[in-house]
Amino acid sequence: MSEIIREFDMLCGVAMTAYDEESEISYETSLLRILNFVKCNLIYKKEFILKFENILMSSSSPFEVVAFCMRELQWPEIKDFVISNMDPSQDPRSEALRGVLTAYDEFWPDADLYKYYDANKQN
């Protein structure tokens, strides 16, 4: 496993801790660190895609990590993955997956939850 992927995993671990409000940094700050890290290491896009897919399929990972990143990145591979895995009758996370899809829309209803995206709406 590359050092970049280990760092990504560590950043996601920090986000999980912040999500559970057990961290000194805010959840949004931890999400922004992940987004910026991915943007600085796009050569690892395939690996990041696999990591994002694993987050979406995990029952213990907050899907917001993916939604937050995909709001800016708009990777079609993740959108296609979400669509192909939505099955409300089979998977209780389908509602969470639907929430990730909204990050691809022109208007993202969750943007106001994050200063980073709320401020960008005004630009």
Rank of each mutant, 00 (worst) to 15 (best):
D87K: 06
D105M: 07
E53V: 13
E22K: 15
I43Y: 11
S59F: 13
W108T: 07
I34C: 10
M1V: 12
N85Y: 03
K121W: 12
V38P: 05
E24A: 08
Y19I: 01
I25W: 03
A119S: 14
Q74V: 00
N120W: 11
L42G: 11
D118I: 09
G13R: 13
L97Y: 00
R33I: 15
E7Q: 13
D9V: 15
P76Q: 14
F63Y: 10
L73Q: 01
P62E: 07
S30L: 04
M70V: 02
S2I: 05
N85D: 10
D80N: 11
S59I: 11
I5M: 05
F8M: 04
R6D: 08
L35P: 00
E47M: 12
F68Y: 13
F81H: 06
E21W: 13
E7V: 11
E106A: 12
L42Y: 10
R98H: 11
Y114L: 03
S60D: 13
Q90S: 15
N36D: 11
M86E: 06
F8I: 03
W108R: 09
M57Q: 15
I83K: 04
I34M: 06
L101S: 13
S84I: 12
M10D: 11
W108F: 06
L35E: 04
L56E: 01
K79D: 00
M1W: 02
L35I: 03
